[in-house]
Amino acid sequence: MNIVVCVKRVPDTAAEKKLDPSDHTLDRESGESILNPVDEYGVEEALRLREAHGGEVTVLTMGPAGAEKNAVRKALALGADRGVLVKDDGLAGSDALATAYVLALALAQMEFGLVILGSESTDARTSLVPQALAQLLGLPGITYVSKVEVDGSKVTVHREQEGGHWVIESELPAVISVVKGINEPRYATLKGIMSAKQKPLEVLSGEDAGLDPAEVGLSGSKTRILAAEARPPKQKGKLVKDEGHGHVELADFLQQNKFI
């Protein structure tokens, strides 16, 4: 079974993230960027399924020039077979649903049994892309998956629910998003990093993918950011050193604020 893993390049977790003041898009050049940490679990799950069932693992991403940096190459170094990048400068500033639209067009040209995404990216964190992608492809969409078992034309997964999980059985092909902790992602080996450079990376232009420029990018997205500002720094609170009565002072504070 062929598997496609959709990945995203995000700013390093520890880096300060900034919006470009001119158009309120994420300034991706001001700091280090990495493969979205949650996507590493998606790549790992795909590699494990390949090891058990055979097939090929393709890594897919989209964006303006540079979108593949540190994301697709990293996934190839971890063991994915090939990469596909939908690269078009008009894609900059695409919102979640516009992103799903582009991914869906690229996927429509590919053969796969399963599409895997991370349950969220660590920059935008909306978790909207996986289900939108499933709908656009007309496939079952199963999000927040913490366990995957493939059996022929069927997939059985655990979907995280508040306070537990549901066991879901679905037909394939399907789109799933996996949560952090579903597995223990491997590290890239030196050999993997070296061989990643030789692996095929197919670049599709917007035209190749068949996308309508009016549906993507900052202007084609159906949501618009009107303003962005840094959160005002928090006023300094009260700091108490416990000398035996700290809990009483804290209880007073909670009571004054009507939490008790």
């Binding site: 979640a96 649903l97 892309v129 289900q131 939108a132 969409g141 508040e162 159906k222």
Partner: peptide, 19 residues
Amino acid sequence: ADGKDVASGVASKVGTGVV
């Protein structure tokens, strides 16, 4: 989790945006 999933699914089916 579920609310955002359904919102995202509905928005892509009817062709609108979601915040």
